[in-house]
């Protein structure tokens, strides 16, 4: 499915320069480095991945040894076998994306609109949004694990006030994984939102209130539609990487065996069990589903031209 979608796109791109004009030859020449790059570093691995995903055990019994085949059933197997992890991936990604949007929108609104008259505050807050990037995100995620570890003050407090039961902990729970995902991807949501809110014409909001719209209606009917492109690019920039993330949900960081996502399965199949066909099939599946979802989302939002 994903291959078909990609193949269509690639064909379209190749057809454009085929028009026999001098101009198109120049265009083709200019496109050449990009096309070679895409061919070498995107198409080749992708095709290799798809071929691997269809391989079968070669019968030698040696671990990690597979033969070429056309085992479409590999896909059926991974869907039934790893259904919980697949649903974790998309479920967590959805919740974390919505949470990041709910946190980022007011933040970006404050920086981009309310702080407009105070460039110093604006600059400072933007720096704070980006500041976490100065430290490796592995370290930061690990720090959260320490903060919410089983014997941490935070967890003890939550147990004492009764939010957590006496034998409940945070690390290893879906809550903790979603928390980590949200935390790690908030800047990717905030920055596109900021860039569109910063350009929002306040006079349009004044016109709304002048035309009898309450602040809530003005937000719903004017601010929200005008900032939709930022919301769309922000949600895409968070949802796509979150669905493929394997750090937050891994047992080494904030997750546990019950919170594994597709990325964690791919990691263990590839690197631990050397089960290349399964890992490849899962990867292709993840990519295909994301492509479908994003395509559908963009079409529903009616903003293909804004992406």
């Amino acid at each position: 499915m994903a291959f078909a979608a990609f193949g269509h796109g690639g064909g379209g791109g190749a057809a454009a320069p085929a028009t026999p004009t001098k101009k198109s030859k120049v265009a083709l020449f200019l496109l050449l480095p990009g096309l070679i790059y895409l061919g070498l570093f995107f198409m080749t691995p992708l095709i290799s991945l798809i071929i691997t995903s269809l391989e079968v055990p070669d019968g030698s019994g040696v671990m990690g040894s597979y033969a070429y085949g056309f085992a479409i059933e590999n896909y059926g197997k991974v869907v039934t076998e790893f259904w919980p992890q697949i649903s974790h991936s998309f479920g967590y990604a959805l919740i974390a994306t919505v949470a990041a949007l709910l946190i980022s929108y007011p933040l970006a609104y404050f920086i981009g609109v309310k702080a407009r008259r105070f460039p110093l505050i604006q600059g400072l807050m933007l720096t704070l949004v980006i500041a976490p990037f100065f430290i490796s995100f592995l370290l930061r995620t690990f720090a959260w694990k320490q903060i919410f570890s089983n014997d941490s003050v935070a967890v003890q407090f939550l147990q004492q006030v009764g939010i957590l039961g006496p034998h409940d902990y945070l690390v290893g729970t879906p809550f903790m994984v979603i928390f980590g995902l949200t935390y790690n991807f908030i800047p990717f949501m905030t920055l596109p939102l900021y860039s569109i809110l910063e350009r929002l014409d306040i006079r349009l909001l004044e016109a709304g209130s002048d035309l009898y719209a309450t602040p809530a209606t003005t937000f719903r009917k004017i601010t929200l539609p005008l900032t939709a492109p930022g919301i769309i690019s922000g949600t895409l920039l968070t949802f796509i990487p979150i669905a493929g993330d394997y750090v937050n949900a891994s047992g080494d960081f904030l997750g546990g065996t019950k919170t594994a996502m597709i990325g964690n399965v791919v990691e263990s199949r590839f690197l631990v069990l050397n089960d290349y066909p399964t890992a490849s099939a899962l990867s292709v599946l993840l990519m295909g589903v994301i492509l479908l979802l994003v395509g559908f989302y963009a079409k529903r939002s009616g903003t293909e031209d804004l992406l």
């Binding site: 014409d201 006079r203 004044e206 002048d210 035309l211």
Partner: peptide, 11 residues
């Protein structure tokens, strides 16, 4: 009601 200098029509 106001007719704004920039018109402020909703795009």
């Amino acid at each position: 009601n106001t007719v704004f200098q920039s018109y402020a029509l909703f795009p």
